Computed example of a mutant assay.
Amino acid sequence: MLPAALLQAVEEFNEQEFYACHDTLEALWMDSTEPLKTFYQGMLQIAVGCYHLENQNWRGAVILLGEGLRKLNHYQPTYQGIDVESLVLDSQELLQTLQQTGPEQLSQVLEKLNASESRGILPRLPKIVTIDH
């Protein structure tokens, strides 16, 4: 069973409440020890990267997505009841799209990400999937 705070963070992340997710994960991160500490930090950095994306901060999004991916790569395919592999794949796809389009096209990327008819053309925002034990 996942800790209640982690379930809350997953729900916040999946509802695209990235700032709230950051706060929840930060509390978990501060109270944990390795290897869990780095795992929480990686998830936190992905959430902050998505928060920067929402605020049209291309540089912040690219940096934090990259940092989070580096940390989470070591926890695949699953860790602590989380499907890390799917989170990493979704985040990598988003990061690659941002890197290929650059900051000058960020508003167009965001418009397409938010348009339902664009599914399949651009990556979707990452989701955190939990694994039932």
Rank of each mutant, 00 (worst) to 15 (best):
64 L>N: 04
82 I>D: 05
44 L>N: 00
46 I>K: 00
58 W>H: 11
77 P>M: 13
79 Y>H: 13
33 T>N: 13
56 Q>T: 10
86 S>Q: 15
39 F>E: 01
48 V>L: 05
77 P>W: 09
36 L>E: 08
86 S>T: 12
43 M>V: 09
72 L>T: 03
74 H>T: 10
41 Q>V: 07
89 L>W: 06
72 L>Y: 05
52 H>M: 01
50 C>Y: 00
49 G>R: 00
59 R>Y: 09
46 I>H: 04
54 E>K: 14
44 L>W: 07
88 V>I: 05
98 L>I: 03
58 W>F: 06
94 L>M: 08
90 D>N: 11
35 P>C: 12
52 H>I: 02
77 P>R: 09
38 T>E: 15
80 Q>P: 02
49 G>E: 01
75 Y>F: 14
89 L>R: 09
102 G>S: 04
30 M>E: 12
79 Y>I: 02
69 L>A: 11
72 L>M: 05
65 L>R: 02
93 E>T: 08
48 V>N: 03
37 K>V: 00
69 L>N: 08
100 Q>I: 02
81 G>A: 14
69 L>P: 03
54 E>S: 11
98 L>E: 01
41 Q>T: 05
48 V>E: 03
53 L>W: 00
66 G>D: 12
99 Q>N: 06
82 I>P: 01
99 Q>L: 10
87 L>Y: 05
49 G>F: 01
48 V>Q: 01
86 S>G: 06
57 N>C: 03
70 R>L: 15
100 Q>H: 07
35 P>Q: 13
101 T>Y: 11
60 G>Y: 03
54 E>G: 11
63 I>K: 14
81 G>W: 06
69 L>T: 06
69 L>F: 06
55 N>H: 15
55 N>G: 13
96 Q>G: 04
48 V>I: 07
89 L>P: 05
84 V>M: 06
85 E>D: 11
87 L>E: 07
58 W>K: 01
99 Q>H: 05
40 Y>H: 03
41 Q>D: 11
53 L>E: 01
100 Q>D: 08
101 T>C: 08
45 Q>N: 07
60 G>A: 09
59 R>Q: 15
87 L>D: 06
51 Y>N: 02
82 I>F: 08
102 G>N: 03
82 I>A: 13
71 K>P: 05
76 Q>F: 11
61 A>R: 00
38 T>Q: 14
59 R>C: 10
49 G>L: 00
41 Q>F: 07
87 L>I: 10
74 H>W: 14
70 R>S: 14
50 C>R: 01
35 P>G: 15
61 A>D: 01
57 N>K: 03
61 A>E: 00
71 K>D: 10
46 I>M: 07
83 D>Q: 09
74 H>K: 10
53 L>V: 00
33 T>G: 12
77 P>L: 11
